[in-house]
Simulated assay, not measured.
Amino acid sequence: MIPGENRLLRQIVCHLILGAGVIFLVTPLLTILMASTMSSADIREGGIHYLPGDDALRNFARIFSLKAGFTEQITTARMLWNSVVVATGVAAFTTVFSLLAAYALVYFRQHFAGALFALIFVTLLFPIEARFVTTFQVTSALGLIDTRIGMVLPAIAAALGTLFFRQLFRSFPEEYLEAAKLDAAGPWRFLIDIIVPLSRRRGMALFLVSFMIGWNQYLWPLMVSTTEQNYTLVRGVQLIGQLSGPGMALATLTILPPLLLLLMFGRSLMRDLTATGDQLP
Score class of each variant (00 low, 15 high):
Leu100Asp: 05
Val85Glu: 01
Thr123Tyr: 02
Leu100Tyr: 10
Phe112Leu: 15
Leu80Val: 10
Val84Trp: 06
Phe126Asn: 04
Tyr107Leu: 13
Met79Gln: 06
Tyr107Trp: 15
Val96Thr: 05
Pro127Arg: 04
Ala113Phe: 12
Tyr107Met: 08
Phe121Thr: 00
Val106Met: 11
Leu99Cys: 07
Ala113Tyr: 12
Ala102Gln: 11
Arg109Gln: 14
Ala130Gln: 13
Ala118Arg: 03
His111Trp: 15
Phe132Val: 12
Phe97His: 05
Leu99Thr: 01
Ala118Lys: 02
Leu116Phe: 15
Ala118His: 03
Ala102Lys: 12
Val85Asp: 00
Val106Asn: 09
Ile120His: 03
Val122Gly: 00
Ile128Gln: 11
Phe132Thr: 08
Ala130Asp: 11
Ser83Thr: 09
Phe108Leu: 15
Phe132Leu: 15
Phe97Lys: 05
Arg131Cys: 13
Val106Arg: 15
Ser83Asn: 08
Ala118Asp: 00
Ala118Pro: 00
Arg131Tyr: 12
Tyr107Gln: 10
Tyr107Glu: 12
Leu125Phe: 15
Ala101His: 03
Thr123Leu: 02
Val86Arg: 09
Gln110Cys: 13
Ile120Ala: 07
Val96Asn: 08
Phe121Leu: 14
Val90Arg: 05
Gly114Asp: 14
Arg78Trp: 07
Ala113Ile: 10
Val96Ser: 10
Trp81Ser: 01
Phe108Ser: 09
Ile120Asn: 06
Ala92Ile: 11
Ala115Ile: 11
Asn82Pro: 07
Val106Trp: 13
Tyr103Trp: 13
Met79Leu: 08
Leu119Phe: 15
Ile120Asp: 01
Val85Asn: 01
Pro127Val: 02
Thr88Ile: 12
Phe93Val: 13
Leu124His: 00
Phe117Trp: 08
Phe117Val: 01
Ala115His: 10
Leu124Phe: 04
Gly114Met: 12
Ala102Leu: 12
Ala77Lys: 01
Leu105Phe: 08
Leu124Pro: 00
Asn82Leu: 08
Arg78Gly: 05
Ser98Lys: 06
Trp81His: 00
Leu80Gln: 06
Leu124Val: 00
Phe108Trp: 15
Tyr103Met: 08
Ser83Val: 05
Ala101Leu: 09
Thr123Ala: 02
Thr76Glu: 04
Phe108Ile: 06
Pro127Tyr: 06
Glu129Ser: 10
Thr94Glu: 08
Thr76Met: 14
Thr123Met: 03
Ala104Phe: 13
Arg109Gly: 04
Leu119Thr: 11
Phe117Cys: 06
Gly89Thr: 03
Val90Leu: 09
Ile128Pro: 05
Ile128Tyr: 11
Phe112Pro: 03
Val96Trp: 10
Phe97Tyr: 11
Gly114Lys: 11
Phe108Glu: 10
Phe97Arg: 07
Ala91Lys: 03
Tyr103Glu: 09
Val96Gly: 08
Phe93Gly: 01
Gln110Asp: 13
Asn82Tyr: 07
Phe126Lys: 09
Ala102Trp: 14
Leu99Val: 02
Ala77Cys: 00
Glu129Tyr: 10
Phe126Tyr: 12
Trp81Ile: 02
Ile120Arg: 03
Phe121Pro: 00
Phe117Gly: 01
Thr76Leu: 12
Thr88Trp: 07
Pro127Gly: 04
Ala113Glu: 10
Thr123Ile: 00
Ala87Asn: 05
Ser98Phe: 11
Phe126Ser: 02
Pro127Phe: 10
Phe132Gly: 02
Gly114Gln: 11
Val122Asp: 02
His111Glu: 15
Phe121Trp: 07
His111Val: 10
Ser83Gly: 03
Met79Asp: 01
Arg78Cys: 04
Phe93Cys: 10
Trp81Glu: 01
Phe112Asn: 12
Pro127His: 07
